[in-house]
Design a protein around this nucleic acid. Structure first.
Lengths: 198, 198
DNA sequence: AGTACGGGTGATGCGCGCCTCACCCTTTTA
DNA sequence: TAAAAGGGTGAGGCGCGCATCACCCGTACT
């Protein structure tokens, strides 16, 4: 029922065992088409230029500097970059995404999950390893702060400002300030709207 | 070769068509095991408590407020939350992740990608829709700051600390401080390492 | 008329990242 | 050998988000 054209994939050079595993994995998946494999690190740009794969699997370990990922992404924006690292830290993973990678995976990731990630990345969805997202690392002033979320929750169940102030052990004025920001961020004008929305 | 126990999945209540599609999708996948389906929104917490599924697919549209996701995540940290929204904005997606969701998907996502995301989410990997990550929305003290990027650029073209200090109109000591942070963040030890490519 | 609510503005304190610079030390390089 | 670079530590100032509270005004409901 789903007839999609195969996803073209290029693989950078990896350690022998890893490379063989990756190749076998991708060969097994008929919806993935290998267009280049075992590409030496210094030939990556050339390979991306000539093959223009939808997905390129990059070896984090062979990166001389992390910003090479940014350079590749700027030069070949049509190719989604999947970075495979031995044991990426949360910071490294975030840096990879900040530099334009679409996915960052540990080599300890299960084989099937690598395939899942390749497919998702080929269609632009981001994949990040566990424990890389906490409140605070996601910028953006439109996000509700933890305190605003507390107020929102109580607003939603119909509590008055005075009751909320009592619940949270703060002044009514503080509650009103939080409520105003919640209204603005969620694009509503009254507490009523919070309950009738959706 | 891959003998993994199936992943238990619970599905919240969705629009009829969507619900049928989701069910069929998950029934087809032998590595997914449906433990609850068409769970009304008000029974979600109860369903998660009794079935303790590895993954729960949440209907963004039936959320009264976004912070319900946070509450569910706090109450059932072992269950990965996959939020399915009609057309999530970048802010909404980030808010979902900030509130503890492991994946946020648009309903326009291809069926197979929903399955991919469920599998990845079951093992803790984060999945985000396209265009939700730009440079800057990822906070974190480990990313290169603008000033560090300035220094990096000059370091890469071979300028000395004194020259960089002159270019940027700051002290040599400041340049050395920026350079140190750049080295640490990029995992290199010398400016040579930054140039060994190109 | 009194109370609660929505909306604007501003102030305060705290924490934290960023930028700047300084002083110390060792290693590398010219 | 002297200069440059790498590495550690710490300090001071600045900006900003967050949380808290205060005062102003107008409106809606009772």
């Amino acid at each position: 029922m789903n007839q999609h054209p195969p996803v073209s994939v290029a693989i950078a050079r990896f350690e022998d065992i890893v490379a063989r595993g990756l190749r076998a994995l991708i060969d097994e998946d008929t919806s993935l088409q290998l267009v280049a494999a075992d590409v030496p690190h210094e030939c990556l740009a050339e390979a991306l230029r000539s093959h223009a794969p939808q997905v390129a699997i990059i070896n984090f370990g062979s990166l001389v500097v992390a910003s090479e990922v940014r350079d590749l992404n700027l030069a070949f924006p049509a190719t989604r970059l999947v970075v495979l690292a031995n044991r990426p830290t949360a910071a490294e993973s975030r840096q990879m995404l900040a530099f334009g990678a679409t996915a960052c995976l540990a080599k300890s990731t299960q084989a099937r999950d690598v395939l899942h990630a390749i497919h998702l990345a080929s269609r632009g969805l981001y994949v990040m390893p566990p424990a890389t997202i906490e409140y605070g690392v996601l910028g953006g002033p439109e996000l509700l702060t933890p305190r605003e979320a507390d107020v929102l929750e109580l607003l939603q169940i119909g509590r008055s400002n005075a009751e909320i102030a009592n619940d949270l052990h703060v002044s009514v004025e503080t509650v009103r300030t939080h409520a105003r920001r919640v209204y603005r961020k969620l694009g509503v004008r009254t507490r009523r709207d919070l309950r009738s929305r959706h």
